[in-house]
Deep mutational scan, measured.
Amino acid sequence: SLEELLKLARHALRHGEEIHVLDRVITDEHEIKRLIEELERLI
């Protein structure tokens, strides 16, 4: 769900981890922040 993805993204950002989204691995902090902003808009 989007909520789950948002939780994962926030966790990854906090802990400096990578996040796997739709067969992509996002490691860049700015990309993760952008993902979080997009998800928050959708929810």
Rank of each mutant, 00 (worst) to 15 (best):
L8A: 11
A12Q: 04
R14E: 15
A9I: 12
E3V: 08
I32A: 02
I43T: 04
R10H: 13
E29V: 14
E17A: 09
L13A: 09
L5S: 02
H30E: 14
V21E: 03
E29W: 12
L35R: 03
I36C: 04
H11W: 05
G16Q: 08
L42C: 03
V25S: 07
V21R: 04
L35Y: 11
D23F: 01
L22C: 06
I36Q: 00
K33T: 09
R24S: 07
E3S: 05
L2W: 12
E17Q: 12
K33Q: 11
T27G: 09
E40C: 03
D28V: 07
R34S: 13
S1K: 15
T27N: 11
L13M: 07
K7H: 08
E17C: 06
E38V: 15
E29C: 03
E3Y: 06
L22W: 10
R24Q: 09
I19G: 01
L5N: 02
D23Y: 00
R34T: 13
K7P: 00
I36R: 00
A9K: 00
L2K: 04
L39R: 00
K33V: 13
H30W: 14
E38L: 14
I26Q: 01
L6A: 02
E37S: 12
G16V: 03
L22G: 15
L42D: 03
K7G: 09
L2S: 03
E40F: 03
R10L: 12
E38D: 12
H11T: 08
H20G: 05
T27Y: 09
H11D: 14
K33I: 14
L39S: 00
E31K: 06
H20C: 02
L22Q: 13
H11P: 00
D28G: 15
K33A: 10
R14M: 15
E37D: 13
A12M: 03
D28I: 06
E18P: 15
R41S: 08
H15G: 06
E31M: 09
L22H: 13
I43C: 02
V25R: 04
E4D: 12
E4H: 10
E18S: 15
K7W: 07
G16A: 07
E17R: 10
H20Q: 12
I19D: 01
